[in-house]
């Protein structure tokens, strides 16, 4: 008897993103589809950035978490289209990011508030940051630099 898909999604919600461990791969919106084909569990995962080194680690982490829960046959497929967008980041994920000190993406292309002091007086330092998905910003009120999860 195969575990239900609801159960599988719950297990996936415990798999952290390797670079930003406060959010799960489900929060990140990169698990696109989960379905049983006979006794094989097929999972479609989409990369965030094409060269992101976390992509292979994420697939390995997903497989490990499911094996730990007794699933034997797992097929993880990379799905390119439609391309991943930060619109798929869950509301929970956005809140967790903010709390962790990373400003969540905004459609305006700029962070709303400093994740430290909530000030809106901000400036961009660099469009590129410590991982492909982040830009580097600075708060002009508390003067702290912070990561901004850039809109994609």
């Amino acid at each position: 008897m195969n575990p239900s898909l609801d159960q599988i999604w719950q297990w996936l919600e415990t798999v952290p993103d390797p670079e930003i461990p406060v959010i799960s791969v489900v929060d990140l919106g990169i698990v696109r589809e989960v379905e049983w084909q006979g006794d094989t569990l097929e999972i479609a995962v989409t990369p965030t950035y094409s060269g992101c080194p976390a992509t292979t680690v994420i697939s390995a982490d997903i497989e490990l978490a499911l094996r730990r829960n007794g699933i034997k046959n797992i097929a993880i497929n990379q799905q390119l289209a439609p391309p991943w967008t930060t619109d798929w980041l869950s509301d929970t994920g956005r809140k967790k990011l903010q709390k962790y000190g990373i400003a969540p993406p905004q459609s305006s292309g700029a962070p709303q508030n400093c994740p430290q002091c909530q000030s809106a007086d901000l400036e961009k330092i660099s469009q590129f940051g410590s991982t492909p998905c982040k830009a580097l910003w600075r708060c002009k009120t508390c003067l702290e630099p912070f990561d901004y999860f850039k809109c994609h």
Partner: peptide
Amino acid sequence: EEDIALANTALDLIGQ
């Protein structure tokens, strides 16, 4: 910052 930007660009290109 430029070092990081260049490395990010290279990474994107190799991913593509």
